[in-house]
């Protein structure tokens, strides 16, 4: 996997992520990518209902949310999370990338959209953009003399 400069929060701590997808593989894959960016996975969920519960429990810096899921779809879950937490940063990650779907997600409070199969360089740039001034690229500390 391509190496990326580590992205951290302004307080120099790791960015905390909640990954929501009904596919275990998709969760693993996205988790691996964000960990390679220096992030920390604080929760995972396989459907929209669990995503809401996990958000309340973990209060992550960012949610990476699939759209098509059983029980409750990602757009509805995003809407509910944003209603309760207007500061929530939610990025939709889906294979269904037609314009109406993207617009619906953004109208419900999602901040961005990434199409599957997820490319790490695109996800990195989207996270950096959505975190805005609340994140920075970590500068390596000089060791010893």
């Amino acid at each position: 996997m391509e190496a990326f400069p580590v992205l951290i929060r302004k307080d120099r701590k790791a960015i905390r992520y909640l990954v929501v997808d009904d596919s275990v593989f998709a969760r693993k894959n996205v988790a691996k990518m964000v960990e390679s960016f220096g992030g920390e996975i604080v929760g995972e969920a396989g459907d929209g209902c669990t995503a809401i519960t996990e958000y309340d429990r973990t209060l992550p810096d960012m949610v990476l949310m699939d759209i098509t899921m059983p029980q409750m779809e990602g757009i509805e879950a995003a809407e509910r999370i944003v209603r309760a937490h207007p500061e929530a940063r939610i990025v939709m990650v889906s294979s269904v990338g037609y314009q109406e779907n993207i617009v619906a997600a953004l109208q419900k409070g999602a901040r961005h959209f990434v199409q599957k199969p997820v490319k790490s360089e695109i996800l990195y740039e989207v996270i950096k953009y959505v975190m805005g001034d609340d994140a920075a690229v970590a500068t390596p500390t000089l060791q010893g003399n």
Partner: peptide, 16 residues
């Protein structure tokens, strides 16, 4: 998961 990704992509084209 493969079906999800392929069909999602195809559906995007057909929807457009």
């Amino acid at each position: 998961e493969l079906a999800n990704m392929v069909i999602g992509s195809a559906v995007t084209t057909l929807n457009d």
